[in-house]
Design a protein around this nucleic acid. Structure first.
Lengths: 198, 198
DNA sequence: GTCTATAATACGATAGAC
DNA sequence: GTCTATCGTATTATAGAC
């Protein structure tokens, strides 16, 4: 036990942040959880922001390399793009839920912009070249829905969720041209549009 | 101009929160924006939390009534469920992006649990009775992807996004039984599974 | 209904001893 | 590498005048 204190700090911080959000987690709480004092944290991290950033760094690095690699070699294979995305999102689902979905974190630096940029690049790959609006919408649904699956089925084994999620996302994409949908199961004599719109 | 000061406070608060998150927005900032002082806010709201809650209340109320109404009358019509969801999410997209996605807000009271509960009820309606895991996954993708569309296409007219999003979500659901997918467009001789898994 | 003034508390961060 | 002690600054909230 010598230098891994840094790692223990990160673990404790992530745990607290997962429960109460970034802003609500103070250096005092983190120090207390470890049984050390606040100034001790400053030996390992230059500032609070430095600590938070260190939690995000692995995710950011892997996103960057994954997307660049996909764009270089596999951007024309939606299944492979979705597979890689699912695996990365699943691997980092803790950090994503605790930190990335927090608007406070997003607004600092250009993290929000970088994430939006990556997302759009993934969507662009999945939507294919010169996509119509409908195709882009399908890509958004596929990618966004896939992301939700990495987080909403925590009680299910990932080996079962993963293929199901990929099939569902790919099914969303498989609409080469707009057609009138055939009547769907169980749809009674309901009015075509009953929404009160907006 | 007499009693609508309360509404003006809410508007200013929402605007600031949209830009910097809930936790980063202080009563001082809100007061400054309106040209009044901090204690004046306490005449209209009992506390800071009271103000934040008042911003969420309309969304919460409408969610509750919408879901109850759907479960009573339209739970077996996925299209109608998705239509109502899209319209509600789109109508409240500002509050949703500013407040609801903030972990800090979610952890207070049982807001997070209520939202998860509603989401699961919507997913259950969309997935149909006694759904398989695959069917539930498709429902998650459909609902989650639909939600993303209300937020990601801000620069497009909603009259175009709405039908496209609904079609995409419904397409996701339309997989009555698991079949081997036919080969998809543009998939070259890529290896079937290249993911480094997790 | 809004003000001035202030209390009570928590925060991030630093200085300096050990 | 961790401590005690503390600085400066923010915050929410209240008391009481007008």
């Amino acid at each position: 036990m010598a230098k891994d204190t840094k790692a223990r700090i990160q673990t404790a911080a992530l745990e607290l942040i997962a429960r109460q959000g970034v802003q609500r987690t103070s250096l005092r709480q983190i120090a207390d959880q470890l049984g050390i004092t606040k100034p001790a944290l400053y030996y390992h991290f230059a500032s609070r922001d430095d600590l938070v950033r260190s939690l995000l760094q692995p995710l950011l690095d892997e996103c960057e390399t994954m997307i660049i690699e996909l764009e270089r070699s596999g951007g024309d294979d939606p299944r492979r793009v979705l597979e890689e995305c699912f695996d990365l999102l699943y691997r980092h689902r803790n950090v994503i839920n605790s930190l990335v979905r927090d608007p406070t974190t997003l607004s600092e630096l250009d993290l929000g912009n970088r994430l939006i940029n990556w997302r759009l690049r993934v969507i662009a790959m999945v939507a294919g070249p010169r996509p119509s609006l409908a195709a882009r919408v399908r890509a958004v649904v596929a990618v966004g829905g896939l992301a939700d699956c990495t987080v909403l089925f925590d009680d299910h084994p990932v080996e079962k969720v993963r293929p199901a999620a990929l099939e569902a996302a790919l099914a969303t994409l498989d609409r080469p041209e707009p057609v009138r949908r055939p009547a769907r199961r169980r749809a009674p004599t309901s009015p075509r549009s009953s929404s009160r719109s907006r």
